[in-house]
Each structure stands twice: as structure tokens, then as C-alpha cells.
Design a protein around this nucleic acid. Structure first.
Length: 907
RNA sequence: GCCGGCGUGGCGAAAUGGCAGACGCGCUAGACUCAAAAUCUUGUUCCCGCAAGGGAGUGGGGGUUCAAGUCCCUCCGCCGGCACCA
């Protein structure tokens, strides 16, 4: 244990208690009374209670990604993002914004339930313990959260509204005509839809939350289904257990209807290009055409999707997915055995095996032929597992000349390859060319494309197909509907009842909003039942509580609670609405002085790049369409923090034993040093390795800050007393005096310049999230200020304001002492106006200019700031150390870059 | 394979096209000390040189420019995402 640089162990708890007790960081909603003594009121006045949002300062909503309170506690990766947002929240508060900076717990989830299955301890108890630990750890870091807005997804006061939002989805449909979600009541029944059960069936087929009997990923080990995206390489994302496909009745959310808007609105928000690209890839929009091929010797048509209808003349065979519904019908008797064998083989393969064999293609001929509509040619129909049943129409026309996969398949099975696109380079081989070129070999009875560039050819053939009833322009998406039910206990129960109609057909109906929240039943045993029913089936009384009905046994996935938590923060204690309208429009930036539509800054890890961020955007758009929120997008600006690796450069994990526990770092160096190090390591978005020695570096810096202010003799005395009576540290702390050379005096020009250069750099860096270089600027200031014989209080105050967002405990302590030292009452540091630099103080009288000869540095000259280009040129040509490189050569050019350098070009 | 990002001292890193390596870690030498820790001071990209000084240098190669870590082309390596999506 290194010698303690300064008594952070006494200072930090003191200020944490002060902030908590005074609710220093409480954010005030429109219409809310602000206590007159609160520092927010002292700075901004107390807006009257009429709810005039324009009386509040502009809002700034700065959000951290919702943590899951795991049993392992906080990991040094969590506080990286939290520290960045906390620094910015404190900075924005000082800049005069009304800052909303909340935290809460995404506390439903599998680990607590699995623990319950093993030990019988109720997940509520496990969860409460984990939340308490997370809260303690987060508070120990001194973050400026508004604790009055803390939320917990497992709290009935919270999930009541999660269930309410589900009912909004359940009671809505997507109207393609208006391109938005609308109440299911606006659905118009066709004239032949007259009976109650017909109407119910139609509505149920349109709802945004619907029931589907779909093949889903079943994980035996977890006892639940998983969404497609929770299955990675044929294993569960959580715990890496095997999963199998199994048809089951499930709740789905119709996210696919929003695919176009989810894609288009990415252009309206400030996210990183890579993140937007990930979302675009996930949505996977692709434009093309559906084309019908008449089967020879069979009445049916085979519909395919292609993005290259212009290559129709190059189609030399067809492939349908082995699961395609027409396979049975079209297979020729002679090929039946081979087709059945292939299908059986494919069915056995896991998805991983099916996609693993990259390049190597398998498939069999069905014996059927299809007729190419453009030239009447009969081409063979194959089945192969490289065509997916779930994408497009589950069938393709194969154009081996211009598609890598088709080409590999054609070569494997010696199928013909016919080039129909000429690359722009006339000498290039058209075979295997997959980009845009010029159509060739593409003329038939009714249509010819030869000579047309690819885009024109696409357009022409599509128009021809449409006018002949053979196909049409189509857009396909990779995005699938969202599998929304889980067979678990520790999640939100669905507010849904099942009944049976007169014909014995089961149907579902929603519980009324007034009955929310629907609490999970009390259970002793959390396992699924022996006959494979979800754990909720064990609560037989609860399931049959409503006469004539049974409850839905599934629960919602963990994503549900995290899809809207950022809205609950706006008005976390409201029990009559999920969020008050005025609070929503103020904080989301559609009322009042702020301009940012949505969360101003959202910081979190890339692991949520697609799932959470796509789901939350989807829910937000539904709520927007239904008039419950005022912005089309939830998160205006989003920044991904980089991963923090272990000291060995490996990902931190229990198995490699390189995990750093923040509690230990805090005990030895304190929260301020920890915060500073997390930011000093490098740019926020980069992946970087942890190095505890680096913590010592910033810790020493904080020690130098301390010594910049305090009187050494009084501190030595403090240390001695503390050593004698360690328990009385808080009493002795007051005996530390500031140094006698800290005085109220006019600062010198050099002192002003040091401070103002620091203000400029720190402010600019904070605006651009460059925390590491801001810290280095503060280090330079302290290094310069330490030897000062007289330290003007005004300069030190300015510096403490800059330091405050980064190391708030030390800054508060010194701020208080500094004011007392010069006989003043300190204003709240958290709400003190952010200093502004005065450019006039930074003007240099003389400039140091490098002199280059042919681009190489040879000398440095000093010239008056006001020197003309001609003066500078003359001085440069006279520069002593440049002479040997100029002598005897012709000066071709002299480049004078004002305030930068001089380059003498000789030859 | 495709898409995105990144390659700079022993290490973390810095650098609106304009003095590469700020700031910090580590190391070096010194001051203080009985000694150590802590602190303070010095030096620290590499090569040649006692020094003055010179040369090379931002993954490799090429280009644009008076001037390139920065812009362009190409290759190599690492990280993240997607992965037969027609």
C-alpha cells in the first residue's frame, strides 16, 4: 500500500453524504416546486408552479445504459461510461443547463431465476441484494445521479407500465396506408367479415403483438425459448447451452412493419457510422423483384425473389429451400428417394452446420423443370440448403455467371453458366462478375435488354414483368418479427387471458388497464413443470383466478423493461401515467428552450448495438404514432464506450483471473483517482488495457493538486494525529490549513495565461468528449502553478471549477476551504457558472517559428507577433542554423505560413 | 468472404496537412534520509558521435504536396459486426 497522497478516505464519504442529503443533483420537472435553498434555485430562480417550461433553463438529458445488477457486482468497464457521462452532466450543470442524469436497474433476468431454481431463494431477494450492492458501488464513485428517479424494472410500480405498453402494442395495428401504428379500432372490416369470430381473427392477424405457432429456438438447459438473436452459433448467448428448433405457440411483436422507418430515421440521429451500419445490416433492406416461373408439367408457379432481375436471361437452373412447401408436389417419382434423403439429412443438421460449410455446396435435383418467362427455356429445379426458407420466397433463380454462390453450386454439379452482364472493363471475364455492367445475351421474344446498363436493364425488365403479370418490384428485409415470450418466472407476466369460444376455439383477450399491475404469482418452485409448461403453470389458483378464463403462462423477455426505461426516468414516480405529457415534451426536447429531439447523449457498450437499440427504437415509434411521446426517435446522440481489457490485454473474465474489482482500487486510491484514470487511459471509444500503475499516475496528480493548496506543516500534524487515533480522522480533517501563500491578490499575466489556456483546452475537450487530453491540460496547469510564490485565490478557484467534473470530491473540499481561507461563503460548486477564457489574455507578444529547409527542421526563430510575412521571411533566411543548408544553393521559394512555420525551398 | 474501425517510443497515448512523441507510466541519474518509502530535480524514439551535430523514423510499398502520422492507391496485421439474406 502506497503512502496516502491526501485524505480522500475522509473527503469522499463526506461529500457523497452532502450531495445525497441536500439532493444536490435532483432535476426538476416543469411545474415542480423548487426548494428556495436548493442550489438550482439559487442559480436559476424558482420557476413558478404553473408548469411553464420556458421558465426552466434548457434541458440536457444524459443517459447511461441500463445496468443489469449481477451478483458479481460492478466491473471496471461499467464506470468508464458512467464516469464520462457524469463529467458531462456536471459540466452541463455548470453551463446552466437543467440536467437530467438518472440511473436504475434492469433487474429481471435469468441468473436470479436460476439461482432460485438451485437454492429456492426467491429471485426478489437475490435481486434486492444485488441492487443494493450495485447502488453502494455506484454511490461510492460520486456520480451525480438524481436518486429520486431511480427505477427498478421488477418494481410493480414500474412493470405496471411495461404491461401497459404491451397493451398499447396489443391494441394497435400497422396501417400501411398511413405508414404508422394506429388503434386496432381503425381497422376496417371487409364486407364479408361479419361474424364476431371472423372479426376477431382479422384483428388478431393484424395486432402489433400477436400469437404465432412458429418454430422457435428451445433451450432445454435454460427451460425457455430464445429469440433468433439470442442464439449464437447454435448455442444460447447466455450460458452457451445447446438449442433446438421446436414449433411452439409464442407471442411475437411485429417489428418488421417498422423496418423502413427504422432504417430511414437512422439518418436523423447522431450515432457513429459503424453503429448505424450495424443496424442497417441487421434490418437488411434489399430491393429487387419477385418473378413467377411456370412449372413444366405442374399447374403451380414458382415465385422467386431476386435483386438482379436484369440477369433473368442468365438463369440456368432454380433452387428451392428444402423446406419449401412445393417440394413434395413437384418432385418427380424417380427423384423422390434422393430428395427425401437430402431433406432428412438437412433436417438433422444444426443451423451452424448448415452455414458452416462456406463454399462447399450440397443439393439434389427434384426432377421438375420450370419455364423461364423471358425465353421459354426449361430449366431444372433443385433443392439445396444454401437457399433459406425464411428469406424472400424461399426459392431463387440461379444465375451462376453473376452470383458467387450459384457459381459454386453450378461448378459442383456441372450446370450451365451463361454470362449476361459485360463488366465495364471489356477485357474482364464476365463469369463471376457480380457488379453493375452492361446487359448481353439478353434478348427474347417479347423483351430485349442488350446494351443497357444494369440499372436501366433492371427497370426495363421489372416494368415488362409487371405489365405481363409475371412479377413485380419487391423489397425484402432480413429483419424478422420479434419473438417476445419466454417460459420463465422472473419477468413481467402478460396481461392476457385465454378463453374458449362456442366452437371450442381458444382465443385471447387483454386485461383492462385498470387491473394493472398484474403481479407474478407466489411460487415455491421455479422450474418449468414436468410436462414442459412454464413455471407460472404451477400457480394453479392464479392461472384460474378469473372465472371462465386462464392466464397467459409466458412472461416477457428482459428487453421489455429496458425498452422504455429512459421514458420512465422523466417522471419516475407518476402512478397515473407512464410519463406525464409536459415532463415528456420538456425532457425530450419538443417544448421549452432545448432543441435536441430525444436523449441528448446516450453512452453505453457496443454489445447493445442491434438488439436493445433496435427494440427501443421500435417501441418508441409505436408510442410516437399513438401520441404518447413527442419524438420519433428516442436517442439523438449515442456514443459507444470502448472495452476495458485486463492488464494482459485479454478480455477481463473470471477464468483468466484478470478482473479488476473497482472496490479495491477505490480503497487504495479513492474515487477521484479512479474516475480520473478511467478517463485518462485514452479516448472513450477505444478498447484499452487496464494498468493499475496508471492509476498511481493520476493519483499523484491529485496529490499535487492537494499540495498546491494545503500547508504542509498542518498536514504533517494531521497525519501524526491520525496515526495515533485513526478513528478520529473526521475531527482532525478540519485542522488542515491552506498554505499561507494562497492569497487574495491580483494574478500576474503569466498566471492568468496559465489558467485561461487551461480553461480553453478543458472546455473545448469536454465539448468533444476528449477527457484524456483535458486531464493532461490540468496536469500542465498544476505543474506550472506549483512553484508560484504567491497563489492568487481567483486563479485557484477557476482551476477547481475545471477539476470539479472530473474529481468532484477533492474539488468540493478545496473549494470550501479556499473560500473559508479568504473569508468567503462558498457558492455551490456544482452550480457555479463555468469559467470562460479571455482570448486577449492568451495573445503572445513573440512567436516561435520553426524554419525548415526543403521540409526539414533546421532552426527556430523568434519574431514579434505583429511581424509581416516579409519580416518573417527575412528572419528565416538569416536563421543561423539554416545557413549551411542554404549556402551555395538557389532559393526557389519561401513559404511563410502565418503563426505556423517557414519553409525555404532550395534546389 | 462482406461491412466498419484501428496500426505512432519499453507501455497508455498526443498531434485544424505545418517543430512527431504533449500528458502520464516505466526506467535513469541526482537531492532529501541513518536507511527506505514518499516528495523534488535531470534525462529518456532509434542509430552514429566525447560533444557540437548528423542521419533515420508514425505496419510495408507507391502517389499528391513547398510540407503527409494526417489526403489518395495498394498490400500486410489486429479488433468489432454480419455471415449462403439471392
Amino acid at each position: 500500500m502506497a503512502r496516502r497522497q491526501y485524505p480522500f478516505h475522509l473527503i469522499e464519504p463526506r461529500w457523497q453524504q452532502f450531495w445525497l442529503a441536500g439532493e444536490t443533483f435532483r432535476a426538476f420537472n416543469p411545474g415542480e416546486a423548487v426548494p428556495p435553498l436548493h442550489p438550482f434555485a439559487r442559480r436559476h430562480g424558482t420557476p413558478d408552479k404553473t408548469g411553464q417550461t420556458d421558465l426552466l433553463p434548457p434541458k440536457y438529458y444524459i443517459l447511461d445504459m441500463f445496468p443489469y445488477p449481477s451478483g458479481a457486482g460492478l466491473h471496471v468497464g461499467h464506470p468508464e461510461g458512467y464516469t464520462a457521462t457524469d463529467i458531462l452532466a456536471r459540466y452541463r450543470r455548470a453551463k446552466g443547463f437543467n440536467v437530467l442524469h438518472p440511473i436504475g436497474w434492469d433487474a429481471f433476468g435469468l441468473p436470479a431465476e436460476q439461482y432460485a431454481i438451485r437454492t429456492g431463494q426467491h429471485p426478489r431477494i437475490t435481486t434486492a441484494g444485488n441492487v443494493a450492492n450495485f447502488r453502494r458501488q455506484i454511490r461510492s464513485l460520486g456520480f451525480s445521479y438524481d436518486w429520486s428517479r431511480e427505477v427498478d424494472t421488477t418494481d410493480p410500480g414500474y412493470f405496471r407500465w411495461t404491461q401497459w405498453i404491451f397493451l398499447q402494442l396489443y391494441n394497435s395495428w400497422f396501417n400501411p396506408a398511413s405508414n404508422r401504428a394506429e388503434s386496432i379500432a381503425t381497422l376496417v372490416f371487409p364486407p364479408d367479415c361479419t361474424t364476431e369470430s371472423q372479426r376477431r381473427a382479422l384483428r388478431d392477424s393484424k395486432r402489433l403483438a400477436f400469437v404465432s405457432e412458429a418454430p422457435v429456438w428451445w433451450c432445454e438447459a435454460l427451460g425457455t425459448v430464445l429469440a433468433n438473436e439470442e442464439v449464437v452459433d447454435g448455442l444460447s448467448e447466455v450460458g452457451k447451452h445447446p438449442v433446438v428448433r421446436k414449433p411452439m405457440r409464442q407471442w411475437m411483436l411485429r417489428i418488421t412493419t417498422f423496418a423502413d422507418r427504422l432504417l430511414a430515421d437512422l439518418d436523423t440521429i447522431e450515432w457513429s457510422d459503424s453503429l448505424k451500419e450495424m443496424q442497417r445490416n441487421w434490418i437488411g433492406r434489399s430491393e429487387g423483384a419477385e418473378v413467377d416461373f411456370q412449372l413444366a408439367a405442374h399447374p403451380a408457379r414458382l415465385r422467386v425473389f431476386t435483386t438482379r432481375p436484369d440477369t433473368l436471361f442468365g438463369a440456368t437452373y432454380m433452387v428451392v429451400a428444402p423446406e419449401h412447401r412445393l417440394v413434395d408436389e413437384i418432385t418427380a417419382p424417380a427423384r423422390r428417394a434422393a430428395v427425401d434423403a437430402y431433406r432428412a439429412e438437412v433436417a438433422k443438421k444444426s443451423d451452424r452446420e448448415r452455414t458452416d460449410a462456406t463454399g462447399k455446396k450440397t443439393g439434389v435435383f427434384t426432377g421438375a423443370f420450370a419455364i423461364n418467362p423471358v425465353n421459354g427455356e426449361q430449366i431444372p429445379v433443385w433443392i439445396a440448403d444454401y437457399v433459406l426458407a425464411t428469406y424472400g420466397t424461399g426459392a431463387i433463380m440461379a444465375v451462376p455467371a453473376h452470383d458467387q454462390r450459384d457459381l459454386a453450386f453450378a461448378r459442383q454439379f456441372e450446370l450451365p453458366v451463361r454470362p449476361v452482364v459485360q463488366p465495364p472493363d471489356p477485357t474482364a471475364d464476365p463469369i463471376g462478375f457480380c457488379d453493375a455492367g452492361t446487359a448481353i445475351n439478353s434478348a427474347g421474344a417479347g423483351i430485349a435488354l442488350d446494351g443497357l446498363p444494369t440499372p436501366d436493364a433492371k427497370q426495363k425488365i421489372t416494368a415488362w414483368l409487371e405489365s405481363n403479370g409475371l412479377g413485380q418490384k419487391t423489397v425484402n428485409f432480413k429483419l424478422r418479427d420479434w419473438l417476445f415470450s419466454r417460459q420463465r418466472y422472473w419477468g413481467e407476466p402478460f396481461p392476457i387471458l385465454w378463453r374458449t369460444d362456442a366452437d371450442g376455439t381458444p382465443y385471447h383477450e387483454a386485461l383492462p388497464e385498470s387491473s394493472l399491475p398484474l403481479l407474478p404469482p407466489a411460487l415455491e418452485e421455479f422450474k418449468p413443470t414436468s410436462d414442459g409448461q412454464p413455471p407460472l403453470a404451477r400457480a394453479t389458483d392464479w392461472v384460474r383466478e378469473i372465472p371462465g378464463a386462464t392466464r397467459e403462462l409466458n412472461t416477457m423477455p428482459q428487453w421489455a423493461g429496458s425498452c422504455w426505461y429512459y421514458l420512465r426516468y422523466l417522471d419516475a414516480r407518476n402512478d397515473s401515467r407512464f410519463v406525464d405529457r409536459a415532463a415528456e415534451s420538456y425532457w425530450m426536447g419538443t417544448a421549452g428552450a432545448a432543441a435536441t429531439p430525444g436523449v441528448d447523449l446516450y453512452v453505453g457498450g457496443t454489445e447493445h448495438a442491434v438488439l436493445h437499440l433496435l427494440y427501443a427504437r421500435f417501441w418508441h415509434k409505436v408510442l410516437f404514432d399513438l401520441g404518447h411521446v413527442s419524438t420519433p426517435e428516442p436517442f439523438f446522440k449515442l456514443v459507444n464506450q470502448g472495452l476495458i481489457l485486463g492488464a494482459d490485454g485479454q478480455k477481463m473474465s473470471k477464468s483468466t483471473g484478470n478482473v479488476v474489482n473497482p472496490d479495491e482500487i477505490l480503497a487504495e486510491y479513492g474515487a477521484d483517482a479512479f474516475r480520473l484514470y478511467e478517463m485518462f487511459m485514452g479516448p472513450l471509444s477505444e478498447t484499452k488495457p487496464w494498468n493499475t500503475q496508471g492509476v498511481e499516475g493520476v493519483y499523484r496528480f491529485l496529490g499535487r493538486v492537494w499540495r498546491l493548496f494545503v500547508d504542509e506543516a498542518s498536514e504533517t500534524e494531521f497525519e501524526q494525529r491520525l496515526a495515533a487515533e485513526p478513528g478520529r480522522g473526521a475531527d482532525f480533517l478540519g485542522q488542515i490549513q491552506l498554505a499561507a501563500n494562497v492569497v487574495e491578490t491580483e494574478p500576474s499575466a503569466a498566471q492568468l495565461k496559465a489558467l485561461h489556456a487551461c480553461i480553453r483546452k478543458v472546455t473545448d475537450d469536454l465539448e468533444h468528449l476528449r477527457f484524456n487530453t483535458a486531464i493532461s491540460a490540468m496536469m500542465m496547469f498544476v505543474n506550472e502553478a506549483l512553484p508560484w510564490e504567491r497563489k492568487p485565490a481567483s486563479i485557484l478557484k477557476g482551476f477547481l471549477q475545471l477539476l470539479a467534473p472530473f474529481a468532484p470530491h477533492l474539488a468540493e473540499e478545496l473549494w470550501e476551504r479556499l473560500h473559508a481561507h479568504v473569508g468567503q461563503t462558498p457558492p455551490s460548486l456544482s452550480y457555479a457558472d463555468w469559467p470562460r477564457h479571455d482570448p486577449a489574455l492568451l495573445v503572445e507578444d513573440t512567436l516561435e517559428l520553426p524554419v525548415q529547409v526543403n521540409g526539414k527542421l533546421r532552426d527556430v526563430i523568434h519574431v514579434p507577433a505583429a511581424a509581416t510575412a516579409a519580416d518573417i521571411e527575412a528572419a528565416a533566411l538569416a536563421a543561423e542554423k539554416a545557413q549551411p543548408f542554404i549556402a551555395g544553393k538557389t532559393i526557389r521559394k519561401v513559404i511563410v505560413v502565418p503563426r505556423r512555420l517557414v519553409n525555404i525551398v532550395v534546389g
